[in-house]
């Protein structure tokens, strides 16, 4: 089968699936597709959708392909789902997830040490939402449980791989060469929750200067 023959088959599978379909799964399901690059098939499908003004698209998420509506139709769908959509994560939850994402596998105590607050409740909620999972035990005192992020985490944030997350700036980068204290203060202030556009800009400037 070539790309044009495969298109409807791949489309059917992705449409009927309740989660992202990985290229490996597609390969298993479509025996006729020997050696075809599914990325090409997906591109061709998205091209078709775009050209015929359709409301759907196929996105790459959590290592697989998933059919979604296009963002410009969110307003209407939101009305349909009124009251049934999941709440946004709290700041505490986002902070905790950021730490787990970059330091996984990590224990509760290590998360709490970085955040400076007890994080047991937040971790329990994240477990229940399946954004994190218990992935093992640490070597340290009491062999504490270690936590890692899940495929659901990738889906929730619409990313394909953990490396798609924004990287935390390295401490060295924040320090600069020890001369850029003003910039660091500036960078710190731009991180505030109530930041506005202009502060965000100055933050980026600070970044570029320290790169230069």
């Amino acid at each position: 089968m070539d790309v044009s023959q495969l298109k409807p088959v791949v489309e059917a599978i992705i449409f009927a699936s309740d989660g992202p379909v990985t290229p490996r799964m597609l390969k298993n399901y479509i025996e006729e597709a020997n050696g075809v690059d599914f990325e090409q098939v997906i591109e061709a499908l998205n091209h078709d959708y775009h050209n015929s003004g359709r409301a759907i698209q196929i996105v790459k998420v959590a290592g697989g392909y998933q059919m979604t509506t296009r963002p410009e139709f969110a307003a209407w769908i939101k009305k349909m789902y009124m009251g049934r959509t999941s709440n946004r994560l709290s700041r505490a939850a986002l902070e905790t997830l950021a730490i787990i994402a970059f330091k996984q596998p990590i224990s509760k105590a290590e998360v709490a040490a970085i955040r400076g607050v007890n994080s047991d409740g937040v971790i329990k909620n994240l477990l229940e939402r399946r954004l994190i999972t218990i992935s093992g035990r640490g070597e340290g005192l009491g062999r504490p449980l270690l936590y890692s992020t899940t495929p659901e985490f990738l889906q929730y944030f619409g990313i394909n791989d953990i490396s798609d997350l924004p990287k935390p700036r390295e401490i060295e980068e924040l320090f600069g060469e020890g001369k850029y204290v003003d910039q660091i203060i500036e960078a710190l202030s731009s991180g505030d929750a109530s930041e506005d556009e202009s502060q965000e800009d100055s933050h980026q400037d600070a970044n570029q200067q320290s790169d230069a």
Partner: peptide, 13 residues
Amino acid sequence: RFKEVALKMADFE
């Protein structure tokens, strides 16, 4: 650092 990442993750969300 993580506070910054959390803010960006909220955008992704």
